[in-house]
Nucleic acid binder design. Structure first.
Lengths: 138, 138
DNA sequence: ATATTTACTTGTATTATGCAAGTGAATATA
DNA sequence: TATATTCACTTGCATAATACAAGTAAATAT
């Protein structure tokens, strides 16, 4: 993917310039809710992202400081991807997408349904706990 | 645009299947915050959507019951686009995108900044008022 | 020493987007 | 009444993004 130019100063537009495509938020979902953190993990997700697209998205997200690359503790062959603070702060958006989807789609996986229940029960509490958890991953 | 197939049952993925592109949420922004409601209005937005893309997105959003077409009161030549309840319910997502963007982008238009201030001051109140306003447009 | 894993890159076909021009119905203007 | 203009699109074509298949190099396991 070539460099995306800023289309306008609108906050929605500027946000979409970074993660407004069919794949970026799925990578963020993996990092956020599924605790996936390697290239291979992302590839295995059910939507089936193509490997070159994954590479280009990871690159773009890193450039935009949404994620960062770290050494994987298990092996030098592995890379550990992690959400930055800026990436973790996408959590409220991700929560609202989940809540909207839960209202309008009938087919939602059971484990995610359980998580959505938690989100609804205590949204600020969920955000705080999840944020702490994601910050903790080092 | 040809029919988008469902990639998985994940609520994030299913949501992105509908509006996960660079343009759909900008149309929704126009309907939601700028009170634009005609094809020509959308075309005039600063991001400069191409006319064929606009047509295809409007068609897709209508098919997915996010928006609906109504007769324009002023003229038979005009079409009035309106958010459905499902579309209005995207408001919490749109709010969180605004808040995230306000935190991480330095260039935000003044009028939008004022609106974001309102969102932060009383989020449920903002949602309620805006929802009522959008429902009222008939 | 060899095979496998891991994180990619490269090449090519397909699909989507961007741009310019055109169309037909409705409305405004002369 | 005839003509120009507005409005909501459609069409054709160049360019860009995505999907799919295969390949690569470093690190690790056997």
């Amino acid at each position: 993917m070539t460099k995306v130019k800023k289309r306008s100063n609108c906050p929605i537009s500027q946000s979409l310039d970074i993660w407004g495509d069919k794949w970026s938020l799925l990578i963020i979902r993996d990092l956020m809710f599924a605790k996936k953190c390697t290239y291979g993990d992302f590839l295995k997700s059910p939507e089936g992202i193509a490997t070159n697209i994954l590479a280009s998205r990871l690159h773009a997200l890193e450039e935009n400081k949404i994620i960062e690359k770290l050494d994987h503790p298990d092996s030098k062959a592995k890379v550990l991807y992690k959400l930055t603070r800026k990436g973790i702060d996408l959590l409220p958006i991700m929560i609202e997408i989940n809540l909207w989807a839960e209202k309008y789609f009938s087919t939602i996986p059971e484990d995610r349904k359980a998580m959505i229940k938690e989100m609804k029960k205590d949204k600020p509490g969920f955000i705080k706990a999840m944020t702490k958890e994601l910050e903790g991953l080092k």
